[in-house]
Design a protein around this nucleic acid. Structure first.
Lengths: 250, 250
DNA sequence: TCGCCTCTGTACCAAACCGGACAGACGAAG
DNA sequence: CTTCGTCTGTCCGGTTTGGTACAGAGGCGA
């Protein structure tokens, strides 16, 4: 049982790097939880009592506009965790989180999370670095949503999700993707059809398969690579976070 | 001289709330610095040696896309500070910061900043809450950039800047605003002309004047109000937001 | 005062996208 | 084997915006 759990922990980038006492605390005070497709994780402005470290599930953070429109602002998978606001001293978030691809998470109470932050420099360091990468992703997406086409963003989104589930196939409807991207469904259908025709992906009634990852990377906007490098770098303690951008102000 | 400085500190939402030893540390180890229009503050991936608390200046954080396009991801004025990455344990940022409206900042070395974080619960709390509001703003703008028109976003931007300079008049060209909003200049000219015709603003060769704030608020997308409430609430320790729950200070 | 540079107004075409709608196709449930 | 709901393909008019270009107007320096 414990071996099984330890195996699961390895799949999460943060938990998988803990050792000794820290790992013991995680195993002792946490548990595996499953999320089903579209299941809610956090509601706006509600107290956050648990944090989750995805193992093979993918969660989505979205914001609601006043007119009811929903749009994705971030994705959380095995590279990270939910409950970022706790790290900043808040106990809630104005956003909504839910399950985008069903699977398992490691659940930890907010109090255990805070205890670990105090107890472990390693844990605090990794979580902080994740926060940093997450915030940098938000900044990137501000530009992405303004400057890049549905086609590019769709490819980017598919790649990001595939990285997090680590399988070629996962559930996805055009309708859902359109909501995440803040575009209309028929626009996504055109983009998806083009990607399928090109042989990069195939899909069928709510299920998508990535066929040619490299081609997708070439199709997606730079935002995919930029954020991926950020997240990768965060996991290398000695690496400098950043991606070599060095430009002048206009 | 010291009185003068203390007066300046009051104008920054974070520094203005410090007392006793904390304030003494700030005054002892910091200084006033001026930024000129378009002057750079941080370059991508360069070590952050100083942090700045705007007094009456406004700074802008932008990201560069690979094709050279620049777009704003955040604004920093007297409600906050630069150097957020330090708070997350990083020592650089992938983004660029520069001066959007010239004026003064309180400059503090990174080491003093870290010392204050250790020394003062109050300081750490305020800075953490500011980070929280800043991150929430990023999330809001991800949606805003995708879903709202140039007209709405232009009004939002003008309001946000005016809040930070606290004067009705400040420098702004259509060209610059277009860059910040990630749109083309002539589109901003149309939006600005409409706002002027409506009597909400007036402008002339690189200088804009807000004439009717309330009308502008009505014109801007909800994102203005949402982020303003976040910043206001985060800086009031006793504030109740969301469902009436008090947010804990870290 | 003159000339130049910046800022603003405007125009035009093309592409992308919205908003909405409709129909076919597939699969799950009965 | 139907039925029904979901998912996808497609269409069309209208709007916004991108890309580009040009000209006038104001301010500033020579």
């Amino acid at each position: 049982m414990r071996n099984n759990h330890e195996h699961l922990l390895k799949n999460n980038a943060i938990l998988g790097r803990l050792t000794g006492e820290d790992r013991a605390t995680v195993l002792k005070d946490g548990q595996v939880t499953s999320f089903k497709l579209r299941q809610g994780v956090y509601d706006p402005d509600q107290r956050i009592n648990e944090v989750y470290f995805p193992i093979n599930s993918v969660l989505s953070v979205v914001t609601h506009m006043e007119n009811g429109t929903v749009i994705e602002i971030g994705t959380i998978g095995r590279e990270g965790m939910t409950g970022i606001p706790l790290l900043m001293g808040a106990d809630s978030t104005p956003n909504t989180s839910f399950c985008q691809v069903d699977g398992e998470c490691w659940e930890m109470s907010a109090s255990t999370f805070r205890q670990l932050l105090e107890q472990s420099d390693t844990f605090r360091a990794f979580v902080n670095r994740y926060l940093q990468a997450y915030v940098n992703m938000l900044g990137q997406f501000i530009g992405c949503n303004r400057l890049h086409s549905v086609y590019e963003r769709a490819a980017r989104w598919i790649l990001m999700t595939q990285d997090r589930v680590d399988e070629d196939e996962f559930p996805l409807t055009h309708e859902f993707l359109a909501t995440m991207l803040g575009s209309r469904r028929s626009g996504v259908t055109l983009a998806a059809a083009a990607l399928q025709k090109a042989g990069f992906i195939s899909y069928h009634r709510g299920c998508i398969t990535v066929l040619d990852r490299d081609a997708l990377v070439g199709t997606a906007c730079e935002c995919y690579g930029v954020t991926k490098r950020e997240f990768d770098a965060m996991l290398r303690p000695e690496a400098k976070i950043g991606n070599g951008k060095r430009r002048e102000v206009a």
